[in-house]
């Protein structure tokens, strides 16, 4: 049974003529790692906000169809109920901080769901460990950490609640390269050791492709493609036409394929791209 099911879902923000999303049919299974990509203003954030109930609960607009999360219709349940199952990490780490120390920040959600003190203590240690935040940061104000550390604290505060579904809306978009790498490393760690459904809106496809089970392309409010990574990146031209820029090694190998120098699958990692290029080069030598 899917943990998220969207049926013919559409959303139009109040005062807007254009539908931010329309005719979306999606289902996400337990434990899946789903990457959502698309150009700016295509409806990616609206899509993920609909998955944790922020839409329609916290925004005014017109809704079509339905979104059911863990058996709860988002039109009938408040976000606070859905939040027990769905954690949400926003793109701007500072905008989600609600407290003045790292400890309070991580503990906040746990207090809200009424866990006992020992359980809270244990979860704080576990989540900070997973997000690579040292325990001596507990007393620090989250505002004074580096960009990557801030976003990792935000992820730890969500992880601590141990939701079955974690949504990250462009978690690296406001970070410097070091911060981006740190956050991607945490995503890798989450993939390895935490069996949750992870949904990420992310532009760094080269890092996400090896982790994801599925890629979803959102364009102009519609889901245009929904496929496993290799199949998703198979038609690079289609992605480029729709404002998605795949990693350069993929584009390079795709060009080799067009030139008839390579006929294997599109590589998802740099290593795969190197071996595909070698294969193409050895074919050239043979000619």
């Amino acid at each position: 049974m899917p943990v998220i099911r969207m049926e013919n879902f559409g959303w139009r923000y109040e005062g807007q003529e254009r539908w931010a999303l329309r005719g979306v049919n999606l289902s996400v299974e337990q434990g899946e790692f789903v990457a959502i990509v698309g150009p700016n203003d295509s409806g990616k954030s609206t899509l993920v906000m609909a998955m944790n109930g922020l839409i329609p609960n916290n925004y005014y607009g017109v809704i079509e169809g339905s979104v059911v999360v863990k058996g709860m219709d988002t039109r009938e349940h408040p976000v606070a109920d859905i939040a027990r199952h769905v954690g949400f990490v926003f793109s701007d780490p500072e905008s989600q901080f609600l407290s003045m120390t790292v400890e309070e920040e991580v503990v906040f959600g746990l207090e809200n769901i009424g866990l006992d003190v020992d359980e809270i203590r244990e979860r704080v240690e576990w989540s900070l460990g997973l997000a690579h935040i040292p325990m001596d940061y507990l007393e620090k104000p989250p505002y004074e950490l580096s960009g990557g550390q801030k976003q990792r604290v935000a992820i730890a505060s969500i992880l601590a609640m141990r939701p079955e579904i974690i949504i990250l809306d462009e978690p690296t978009s406001m970070l410097d390269p070091v911060g981006k790498t740190e956050v991607i490393e945490v995503l890798r760690e989450m993939r390895r050791s935490y069996n949750a459904t992870i949904i990420v809106v992310e532009h760094r496809m080269e890092d996400i492709a090896p982790l994801a089970d599925r890629f979803i392309l959102v364009h102009d409010g519609r889901v245009l493609r929904d496929a496993p990574p290799r199949e998703f990146f198979d038609d690079i031209d289609f992605l480029l036409e729709h404002g998605v820029f795949p990693p350069e090694p993929m584009v390079f190998v795709s060009e080799l394929r067009k030139m008839g120098l390579y006929d294997g699958p599109i590589p998802l990692t740099l290593e795969e791209a190197i071996s595909a290029s070698r294969e193409a080069l050895s074919g050239l030598r043979g000619r």
């Binding site: 922020l54 916290n58 609600l98 503990v107 906040f108 809200n112 609640m161």
Partner: peptide, 25 residues
């Protein structure tokens, strides 16, 4: 943003949630 962040972390103004009371950790 604060309102979205509060909701996303199961915050309720009453300090109560289904089946219990908020913990004062």
């Amino acid at each position: 943003e604060v309102s979205n962040a509060l909701d996303s972390r199961a915050f309720r103004f009453s300090g109560l949630f289904k089946g219990g009371k908020r913990t004062d950790y």
